[in-house]
Design a protein around this nucleic acid. Structure first.
Lengths: 241, 241
DNA sequence: CGGAAAATTGAAGTCGGTCAATAAGCGTGG
DNA sequence: CCACGCTTATTGACCGACTTCAATTTTCCG
């Protein structure tokens, strides 16, 4: 019942979906199998998967690594839209051209279907269309959530929210939610949160000093006091340890 | 070819569309006629059309007046999502309940279809479904644009962008783009731009003093120097008059 | 080990928020 | 029609947080 619906809509309209966290379809009809058997593409750190304006040829799933989705504004500022990790689909969208840049943050492996193969899967996997539509609405929710994040006053709130979001996403991937890998650089976080790298750095230091997090080697963060981190994300003033 | 597509998708998924600026369908099949012949509902200033969580019973088109779409956050802050003016559709959405509050800013007249009548029109007007889908993608674009707006550093940029947006929308409605009515209060603008009413007020004063705009009686703003306003919106520093 | 990139830290300046007071609108009622 | 009172808008002063500029340290690779 939904299959034709979105397959058609898919060809017709054009919103800019891009980094989507689809709940992984349980192995079944066509999409997941196709994707799993697709050739693996290796991307080096800092390498771009595609740039804004490129033809949208593939839909990818991140297998390992991390990808930064961003856009450069006319005035030169950079706006990071989202980060994608293992399991996330990227390159979705209904336009023929990419609306954002996608850059690997670390050495990353992705598997992809061509757009035509993806459309084929869309026709055959009756649940994929619905998932795609859900992805669009998730995009919208994410954009609104991001809007609220950036509208938060103090840097501590933004950074705390950011860490908690990453932790939740790590947990959904089956990883340890209390130790977060930060494959992105400070400048990426800054451009995501609408802050400067100095402020991000200072905020990390402040969180570390107040024993809320600890910074581990290899750009990892351990959440020491999750309750407190949640308080900070919610806007509760800090104070002592 | 698109008719069934979105009619089906419509029943299936659930993103939170709400204040949408559909390009008005040229008089044709069913939607516009139905809407035009629908009963007029008059809403007084400050009156709520609906609240968050209410059942979504109607889809409305604003005939005259202005509506504020907003949400109150758990921490008490208020977030204005958008404003709707004559010609804008509001109440769209795929959820059974409203996700936002809608309040008339001034005495407002709206015409609406029940959700079932809207669905009926959706089945009969082959272009409406596509438009609905476009509306969803426009929502996403608008949310992203809003994100960029709020991420702008200085208040002058935000206010200038805001005025230009209103001007463009006024022009699309066929109104004079150089004289903008501001039916909303300062607090609405502030909650929309992520500023305080004092800052909004100061910024208006600054723009007035530097001869970029002039404030007319009746909450109207005249754009005196549009080029300069565009420079300010783009982030060019100001200086003298 | 060396060098460049990245992160941290420091100091000073700026902008917007907060608190507070004043002024301007606007509707109601005398 | 004007006066009154409440709401809304404006303006001012001060303060805190983030930015900017700059220096230093750390990290990461070759």
């Amino acid at each position: 019942m939904t299959s034709t619906a979105l397959a058609l809509a898919y060809g017709a309209a054009e919103p800019a979906i891009s980094p989507s966290r689809l709940p992984r379809p349980q192995a079944e009809g066509g999409f997941d199998e196709r994707l799993s058997s697709a050739p693996l593409r290796r991307v080096e750190a800092r390498e771009h998967l595609w740039c804004e304006g490129d033809q949208r040829t593939h839909v990818y799933r991140v297998e390992t690594g991390a990808v930064c989705i961003y856009k450069v504004l006319p005035d030169g500022r950079r706006h990071v839209v989202d980060f994608a990790f293992a399991g996330d689909l990227i390159g979705l969208g209904l336009t023929s051209e990419h609306a954002f840049n996608a850059q690997a943050l670390v050495a990353t492996r992705i598997k992809g279907l061509t757009v035509s193969a993806f459309n084929q899967a869309l026709r055959e996997d009756s649940r994929l269309a619905l998932k795609l539509y859900e992805a669009l609405s998730q995009e919208l929710d994410a954009a609104r959530a991001q809007l609220l994040m950036v509208s938060k006053r103090v840097s501590t709130e933004r950074v705390a929210s950011f860490l908690l979001t990453l932790s939740d996403r790590a947990q959904k991937r089956g990883a340890d939610p209390s130790v977060i890998g930060l494959p992105m650089r400070r400048v990426d976080i800054a451009d995501f949160l609408g802050l400067t790298i100095e402020t991000v750095s200072r905020t990390f230091t402040k969180l570390k000093t107040s024993r809320v997090i600890s910074l581990l080697p290899g750009n990892q963060v351990r959440i020491v006091d999750r309750a407190r981190l949640e308080d900070l994300a919610a806007g509760d003033a800090d104070g002592d340890a």
